[in-house]
Write a protein that binds this DNA or RNA. Structure first.
Lengths: 226, 226
DNA sequence: TTTAACCATATTGTCGACAATATGGTTAAA
DNA sequence: TTTAACCATATTGTCGACAATATGGTTAAA
């Protein structure tokens, strides 16, 4: 999809993608120590490229590093996620507002098609929540692209995107929000089609607020179990 | 100030800071090729740490890299800066809104003191614009900190901060906006003191819009000269 | 028993050498 | 003269070895 597993670039890029994938899917646990020698051997490369990959992932905030003490998978605690969603609300809201004036009709048609696919998927296989969630990220990415703002696209795409995916994998069992989410997506697209930036922004902000409430409650429940 | 030149950390960190400094001050020109061997020798280190530093700077968007073809200093063209200011408007506006409810009275006092210093500086030495501009960044950073949002602080601080500084150095000769900027800062602080988040956000957004207009005009003039 | 000093081991940090790729100019053919 | 193929050189990519630092357990003193 939007992430290539084996890039044609340098080994450092390969390591970056493979590690990002492992972290996002939870194959590498939150807070887990990332041993350079071990990972390098697993990927069949030297420690040099791997260290460069770790620096890159540090910049993406998927790992945290302490000098001389190594790198660890980032821990998504309640505060971190709360901060992330607050920033996302501001940025995606802005993306919507601008996209309403900048997006082509073709792009809006594309959004509609994507939502049709989502709906079909939900009806057919209510259980397979995973694919739908990935599709949700596509939706947000298309809007970010519609803003024509490179910096915004990079922030929402390369950086936060990964954290979001990570968060979703953790909470992907619960499907309760797919219905209302789809309806909200439709409303947003209609606002974009009418070129109503203010409305589109407001709808997107509420959509993200709703998503945060849903995630927040889930964290509460998890904490109670522990 | 907020940037340490010689960190106590690893050589890669040292290289990161020195390169960031050189780029921001314009010592390294925009678009200039960054030769690994040459830089490594200048900094008295091997190419390993230097390459890690380049990856880090890539993440901060101070350099752009092409696989097998090396790294270059980022080019701040009109579109890039326009995108940057649009994102900043959203993020700093949000920071203000939250800071209005989260900042302590002490922090607001600190902001007032900072502005008093600025005013004194402007009166004493109208010419030394440079120091004042650095102070402006301190102002914005204090507000970001007041939002208590780590992600926001990181984005406005570590990442965009550097690009901003770079842009300012390029345009530091022109001092026309220091007067109105100070007054706008004062208004923002008063809104924060009254805990009026909505007003603080609106004032900050206008402040940044004004800054962008000023920079934009300057770019126009430069383009005409060339 | 508790604490601190110490030491062996594991891990990260750094370097220099070599391989792989890009660059820029030269030669030869059209 | 123009274009393409080629080659020498410069530069980036990668590795393995060694140095510097952190870690975790053991010993000895209080």
């Amino acid at each position: 999809m939007l992430i290539k597993t084996s890039e044609q670039g340098t080994l450092a890029d390969v390591a970056t993608h493979r590690l990002a994938h492992s972290i996002v899917t939870g194959e590498l646990e939150q807070g887990q120590k990332l041993n350079e020698a071990e990972l390098a051997e697993r990927f069949g490369m030297g420690r040099g490229p791997l260290r460069e990959a770790l620096r890159h992932l540090e910049g993406m905030r998927l790992v945290t590093r302490v000098p001389n003490a190594g790198a660890r998978v980032v821990v998504l605690d309640r505060k971190t996620l709360s901060d992330l969603y607050a920033v996302r609300e501001a940025l995606e809201g802005m993306a919507c507002r601008i996209a309403a004036t900048q997006m082509s009709d073709d792009e809006i048609t594309q959004l509609r098609k994507l939502l049709d696919q989502h709906e079909a998927q939900i009806k057919k296989q209510g259980g397979k929540v995973y694919a739908q969630k990935e599709g949700d990220l596509d939706f947000h990415f298309l809007i970010a692209r519609g803003s024509r703002n490179q910096m915004l696209m990079h922030m929402l795409g390369s950086e936060q995107y990964q954290l979001l995916r990570m968060c979703r994998y953790r909470t992907s069992r619960n499907a309760e929000r797919t219905g209302p989410a789809l309806q909200q997506h439709r409303q947003i697209v209609e606002a974009l089609a009418q070129r109503d930036g203010e409305l589109a922004e407001m709808l997107m902000r509420r959509h993200i607020q709703g998503a945060w409430r849903s995630i927040s409650e889930m964290i509460d429940r998890e904490e109670q179990i522990e």
